[in-house]
Every structure is written in C-alpha cells, then in structure tokens.
Amino acid sequence: MDAIIRNFPHRPEPQAKSADTSAFLDRPVTDRPSREEAEAAVRTLLRWAGDDPDREGLRDTPARVVKAYQELFSGYDRCPADELGRTFEEVAGFDDMVLLKDISFHSHCEHHMVPIIGKAHVAYLPNGKVVGLSKIARVVDIFARRLQTQESMTAQIATVIQEILKPRGVAVMIEAEHLCMSMRGIQKQGSTTITTTFTGAFKEQPEEQVRFMTMVRDPRKG
C-alpha cells in the first residue's frame, strides 16, 4: 500500500531567501553537550527502559551509542551547498535531463527518532553547467543524516539544487518506509510513502513531470 503525498512549496524569487534557505547554509552547531553528558543521557534512557546500564552487556553501550550517533547524524556537520560548489561548463551543448535513480538512504524520523529507509530519485535540467553525479548523492546523504520528515527532506534537496546550480528545473521523488509506522503505533509493515517536489520547468510543464516519472518507473528509459 502506497501513501502518496505531494508537496509543492512556493518557489521564492531569485534574490529572496526562503524558509528552506537555512537548511543548506547552516554550519555545525557549536554549543553541543560534551561526550560525557551524552553518554550519561544514554545511561538514563537505559534505566528508563527498565534495564541496568551497569550490567556487562550494557556497560559500554552509552559510548557505542554516542559514537553511532556521530555517524548517523553526521549531516549536521556538513553543508550541502558546499558539495554543489564545483560545476562543469564544458557540456558540449547538453541541456537535457540529468537523472540519478535509486539513491539509497537511511534517515531518522524527527518525531520518534526511528529509522526511515528508502531511495531518492533526483533530476535536473542543466542551464549551461552540470555537477558531478556523486555530488547529488552526497546532498541526499547529508539531508538524510539529520532528524527529518520525508516531506521536508524532499523539499530541501530540490531547494538546494535549484538555489545553487540554478538549473531550468529540479524534480525530486522519495520513496521510503517509516519504521515508526511498522514498529510502533499502527504497525503496518511494508507500507511506502512517496513524496515529490518540482521546481522550474518540471513544475510549470506537465510533460516534463510525466517524462521524469516515466524514466523513474520504466527501467528501459532510465
């Protein structure tokens, strides 16, 4: 069962800063708790869950959790705009769609801090320059490695690509399973949420949306 959610945020004027602008201009937070404070918080959660943080199996768990969090939430230490800074203008006149399909990612729901597992499809229409393909995947990874809602992540990816590369349009689709739905609450395993965001030509020209969706869904046209 697919729950389809479409999000079409208002596209800001070129010189204006939208609410999403801070999502890719932010730099790392500097007033974080110490590692010792973070480990103490994990110990408190272990006790609250009903276990003994001093037993052998859990003795090193606080340190392991803090180390894991550094990796899982490393997106807060990276600026996606920086990843898109280097572009290539020698494109031999190429101005058609560039599509990266099936970019796998894992994130965490900001409401329950439970994993979101899925894949992203990202396309843009170049406007005289292109960016290295790995940079698009890194942008997805940076936003994924933050506490997220799928709707926000979809819009953030589209916004930063539009603002930094200034292509003729951007299309983003994310398909993901939310473990906060399958592990707790309604407990519906296997349900998938789909979100899309379109800017520029993809938003204004329905045929470009159709072409994007066709290329995403049809492996022969990917």
Results as ranks from 00 to 15, higher is better:
Lys221Asn: 09
Thr61Met: 10
Phe212Lys: 02
Asp31Tyr: 10
Thr195Trp: 06
Arg146Thr: 08
Ala123Val: 05
Glu151Val: 11
Val170Tyr: 02
Arg64Asn: 05
Arg78Val: 12
Val98Met: 01
Arg184Met: 05
Met173Glu: 15
Glu83Trp: 01
Phe24Val: 12
Leu84Cys: 03
Pro12Phe: 01
Gln162Lys: 04
Ile142Ser: 02
Phe8Glu: 11
Glu71Asn: 12
Met215Ser: 09
Leu165Glu: 10
Val140Pro: 00
Val131Tyr: 00
Leu25Met: 14
Thr61Asp: 05
Val98Trp: 08
Asp52Trp: 04
Glu83Ser: 11
Thr44Leu: 09
Phe143Val: 12
Arg145Thr: 13
Asp26Glu: 15
Ala144Arg: 09
Ala63Ile: 10
Ala144Gln: 03
Phe212Asn: 07
Pro28Ala: 05
His108Pro: 02
Thr44Tyr: 12
Ser191Ile: 11
Val160Leu: 04
Met173Cys: 07
Phe8Thr: 00
Asn7Ala: 13
Arg86Gly: 00
Glu83Leu: 04
Ala123Leu: 06
Lys129Met: 01
Phe73Gly: 00
Gln148Gly: 02
Phe88Arg: 00
Arg184Gln: 10
Ala158Ile: 04
Gly57Gln: 06
Val122Asp: 03
Gln187Trp: 06
Glu71His: 14
Ala49Cys: 11
Gln70Trp: 11
Asp20Ser: 06
Lys203Arg: 12
Met1Pro: 10
Gln148Pro: 06
Lys203Gly: 05
Met97Gln: 07
Gly93Asn: 08
Gly200Leu: 04
Pro206Trp: 04
Asp77Tyr: 09
Pro53Thr: 03
Ala49Lys: 09
Val131Trp: 02
Pro9Leu: 14
Lys188Thr: 08
Gln150Cys: 12
Cys180Glu: 06
Arg6Lys: 14
Ala19Cys: 01
Asp26Asn: 14
Asn127Leu: 04
Cys109Leu: 08
Glu175Pro: 10
Leu58Glu: 07
Ile142Lys: 05
Ser191Trp: 07
Ile4Gly: 06
Met113Trp: 09
Thr87Asn: 01
Ala201Ser: 11
Arg146Asp: 07
Ile4Cys: 00
Arg64Ser: 02
Ile142Met: 00
Glu13Asn: 13
Arg64Ile: 02
Arg35Gln: 13
Ala63Cys: 04
Val130Ile: 13
Lys166His: 08
Pro126Ile: 03
Gly222Tyr: 00
Asp141Cys: 05
Thr21Glu: 12
Arg43Cys: 03
Thr154Val: 11
Gln148Cys: 06
